[in-house]
Design a protein around this nucleic acid. Sequence first.
DNA 1: AAGGCATGTTACTTGCGAGTAGGATGAGGC
DNA 2: GCCTCATCCTACTCGCAAGTAACATGCCTT
Lengths: 262, 262
Amino acid sequence: MQRLGEERVPERSVDAMQESLDSQSPWKASSDRQTEREAKRVAVLRTAARAFNEMGYHNTSLDDIARRLNVTKPTIYYYVRNKEEILFECVRIGLEMLDEASNDVIGHGGSAYEELIAVMRKYAEIVTMDFGMCVIRVGEEPLTEESRRTLRSLKRSIDRKFRRLIERGIAEGCIAPCDPKIAAFTVAGALSWIGRWYQPNGGLSAHDIAAQCIDLLMNGLGKTRTSGEDHDTRSQGQPSGQSGGQTDRHQNGPSGAGGPSS
Amino acid sequence: MQRLGEERVPERSVDAMQESLDSQSPWKASSDRQTEREAKRVAVLRTAARAFNEMGYHNTSLDDIARRLNVTKPTIYYYVRNKEEILFECVRIGLEMLDEASNDVIGHGGSAYEELIAVMRKYAEIVTMDFGMCVIRVGEEPLTEESRRTLRSLKRSIDRKFRRLIERGIAEGCIAPCDPKIAAFTVAGALSWIGRWYQPNGGLSAHDIAAQCIDLLMNGLGKTRTSGEDHDTRSQGQPSGQSGGQTDRHQNGPSGAGGPSS
DNA sequence: AAGGCATGTTACTTGCGAGTAGGATGAGGC
DNA sequence: GCCTCATCCTACTCGCAAGTAACATGCCTT
């Protein structure tokens, strides 16, 4: 285990480099100063997030993370206080992404209906990414009460925006009257669930899944809809892979892994 | 720590008995034989499930579980092989409950629409109960691959029934055409999410939450529905607490705990 | 060219909690 | 009365992974 970017390159150099690229490990060569340190810190977090999402927090040792980065454990402690801080930061970043996504969309002149859908799209996208997935898959069970409090307030902020949007939609008349609290939870639940079973190389693209999921949430499973208005709910994006009708092949889920629940 | 049901009763006897009742601990006196052993085993599992749901699998030591049962750790090993078996059994029971719930409902002469709603109701109910909640909150990350395989096949069975029901509904014309795969995951996701934040003493009853959640899933958030047919989707049960309109008090979730995600 | 700082490493300590060995206690059968 | 089995306890082992001490290496500054 030597400093990366050295000459002593064993025969697995290509694999090692590939792995470095995959994990976006910046232990190679660069120039800045403080910037690079921050970049490495983020690399630690991102690599950890991936490991957590794949194997779970408790099944991931710091040695595992270090190995993925081609360094040793104490190096990690140079960028991070302890294991908990890693998870805390991963979840915090994920939540911050969700929060910012709402801010990017809300209050820019769109109807509540349009804005809600836009937020949902972003939400679904983020929970399939490293940090966002961490929010869903790992959660905050391993954290201290102190950390949990901080994260909870972030979550509340996101939840509030969802509810306000729904309330506005009801007032504007484009969303059916309902309890915004429950509606927000249901929507967040359905979208979050994507982050639980989604995995790349799964036949379905995250984009398509999100589109159909959102369509279902907005229009419902029941055939009550005689399709009055022409709000575009369906994905108008590039249809990669199969996405439209009932392409139910065999009995496996999109990820090929498990069924519902978990 | 003495064998329960003995005479040496400290001053907290009432509390102890209460706790025993709460956990349904049968370490008292009985008569049967093999039956009682099985009952105790279930008590171990149920108590463990509650502890897991409250504090998470890894934050729950066997000593914790033992303490809740007023026994010591080795006693637990008398009823169970190891910690993993406890979780495995909890999740297995939860999944089996979900599976049986489907069997109770499906194919008894109802329309796909009716049957789907009935299944959803039961699903939502089960994920708010001890073992069902375990399926959602703890998951199977701590289990071995062997155990996971077994549970996955159970999940697939449940998922399959959901999809068949949706397919049937599409054929019957009472459910909007969609990809049954994604629809099943979305529905399961939204309902499962209830098990993640629901907690008794939370103002809203599990029944009401489920009813509104199902209403939303069937009819959608959007106001496309001009409410044609009169399928009863809304909860026709006893309206305990507030349930109808937007009773959004302050910004807290139903459990008073956190927002969405997690 | 020399010292200081940033970055990593090897080799260790340590604590927690899962799991176990072996013994006590009592109920029931003979 | 004695033996056996079921049940539960006290008192341990032990491994894993988090965290740390102390040292190595090289760049950058002056």
